[in-house]
Amino acid sequence: MRRGAVGVAALLFAGVLIGALLGLPAPGAGLPPLVTAQMGNSGVTHPVTAVLLNFRGYDTLLEVAVLLVALLGLLAVQRSERAVAPGAAVEPVLQTLARRAAPLMVVVGVYLLWAGASRPGGAFQAAAVLAAGAVLAHLARLLPAWSAPRAWLRTGITGGFLVFLAVAVALLGGGALLQYPPAHAGLLILLIEAGLTVSLALLLAGLFLFLSEEGTRR
């Protein structure tokens, strides 16, 4: 009964949505010409990075804050006493593979961070690769699950956001939020991205490792 109603509603909704999309007027010039015109002032040469960390830097600042809040919420609903699952058998093939892959993933992460200025890449991609490396190491039982974050982990997780916020506050005198002086924009973006890479990698890994019950050291 409910399935049928949902199915009919979904079909109707899909029809309306597709009709609306097909009825859209042809795209105008939009923002790309504006982005291209200001690329010289952005401090980087890749347009997506320029938008992400310069033209719309406050979006990224708030996004990192959202990530922090999500991790705090996750830690808040996490039960303090966790049943430690009995350790499954260690898989030698997976462990060997993880040992070989981990250094490569660190190299790829650093490369992505550096490449972000001029081609696809950047802090988020680098952090995702690093966090995936941590999750892989955990699944191969090379890295235990995390319990309550200690001081170093708390510093690491919040550090990137604090650096970003410090840069934003320091530049407030310029009149607008995150308006970099063009001469120093490249350096400031690299500083922010380096901080973000470390923090986001710990954050994204934490989303998995704080939830995991396997091999918790307690």
Partner: peptide, 13 residues
């Protein structure tokens, strides 16, 4: 268009 691309990257995270 780099602007929606950056917004979508934010959205994914």
């Amino acid at each position: 268009d780099p602007v929606p691309q950056a917004m979508v990257l934010t959205g994914i995270v």
